[in-house]
Simulated assay, not measured.
Amino acid sequence: MAGHSHWANISAKKGVIDKKRGKLFGKLSRAIIVAAQSGGGDPTTNLRLRYAIDKAKKASMPKDNIDRAVKKGCGEAGGENYEELLYEGYGAAGVAVLCDILTENRNRTAGEIRKIFEVHNGNLGATGCVAWMFDRKGQFLVPVEGNDEEALFEIAVEAGAEDVREAGDSFEILCDPDLFDAVNAALEERGIETTSSDITRVPANTVELDATDGMKVLKLIDALEDQDDIQNVIANFNISDDIMEELAESM
């Protein structure tokens, strides 16, 4: 589906904007704290921590912030206890939305997120209402510019990737979560830089949105991502490049 702004590509572009909001480092710190709490403070033996640290480094998070978050997770600097939750709901046009949550107060978080959905033409659903529409995958985004699709496909598949496909101005590489490290290592060995690399959920099917519903869904996503306890938002929609350009001018 080349020529469309896939959610993966939209999400990566929005990540650049999120840095300007001043909240990204707080979310990244929270992810590092939880990773260290669950598997220890050594990224060589705690893959989840290594991925969280790598993501923080890609976002240019200072080393002192990273080290401080690791220490908090290990209980060395006033550790904080967070609960991991997955909230599910619907946006305009029936778009399925998943929210990865890290919170110290689930009741407060649930109320705030429910309100966000209601204000933006959606509704928070019950557990399991949309999660079945997504598959857990390792996902990498590589810029189209400066990279050859055929060569990238060969490198990725040889390392265990399932698919390489064009998504707007990026190539999207998908793999089994267990092979994330192998694919990541293969890309690094060849000097191929990624704009995004994560273990996430990928929609099995997508909803094509027009300008009206596209605006409603993007405003919902923006509001959810602005909520402090939400680490990541995933949704199953596509917006054509023409409509995306139109929306960008009005947002």
Rank of each mutant, 00 (worst) to 15 (best):
K55D: 04
A92I: 06
K58C: 04
C129N: 08
N123V: 09
L152S: 04
V70E: 08
L174D: 08
L98E: 05
T109Y: 01
V164P: 13
Y51H: 07
E76K: 06
H120C: 12
G73Q: 02
G41Q: 09
G160H: 05
C74A: 11
L152W: 05
N123W: 14
R108H: 12
I155M: 08
T127N: 14
N65M: 12
D176V: 03
D163H: 06
T127F: 09
R106E: 12
P43L: 13
V157L: 11
C99K: 10
K137G: 05
K115L: 15
G79V: 00
N121S: 15
G128V: 01
G111V: 03
D64C: 04
V164Q: 10
D100S: 12
N46D: 01
M61P: 06
K55A: 03
I101P: 14
T103D: 12
G122R: 01
V142I: 13
I173N: 13
D135L: 13
D64H: 06
N65R: 13
K63P: 00
V157W: 09
A161Q: 06
C175A: 13
A156D: 04
D54C: 04
R48F: 05
G125H: 12
K63N: 11
R136Y: 06
N65K: 14
Y82W: 01
L47V: 06
E76H: 02
D176S: 04
L47E: 10
I101T: 06
E80V: 03
A56V: 00
R108D: 14
T44G: 05
G122P: 12
C74R: 15
D42L: 07
G75L: 03
E80A: 07
A161S: 12
E150S: 08
A77K: 11
I53W: 05
D169M: 08
D64R: 10
A93T: 06
M61H: 01
Y90S: 06
G73K: 07
N107S: 15
N65L: 08
R165C: 07
Y51P: 11
N121V: 07
F171V: 01
F140Q: 10
E76C: 00
R136K: 15
A93W: 06
I66P: 00
G128C: 04
G94S: 07
R48G: 13
L174T: 15
N81H: 09
G73A: 01
V157A: 11
W132G: 08
V70A: 04
Y87G: 04
G39W: 03
A126W: 12
E154L: 13
A151Y: 11
I116K: 04
F140P: 10
A56Q: 03
R108G: 05
D169I: 01
F134E: 09
C175Q: 09
I116Y: 02
A69C: 00
Y51C: 05
R108E: 13
D54T: 02
R165I: 12
I116V: 10
G138S: 12
E172Q: 15
E154I: 09
A69G: 03
D67T: 14
L98V: 02
A59S: 08
L174E: 11
L152Y: 08
C129S: 14
K115G: 13
F117Q: 09
Y87N: 08
A52T: 02
D42N: 14
Y90M: 02
P143H: 01
G73C: 02
A159S: 09
C74P: 00
T44W: 10
E83M: 03
Y90R: 14
E172R: 15
A52I: 03
K57E: 01
H120E: 15
E145K: 14
L102P: 04
A131M: 07
V130F: 04
L86K: 14
G73E: 00
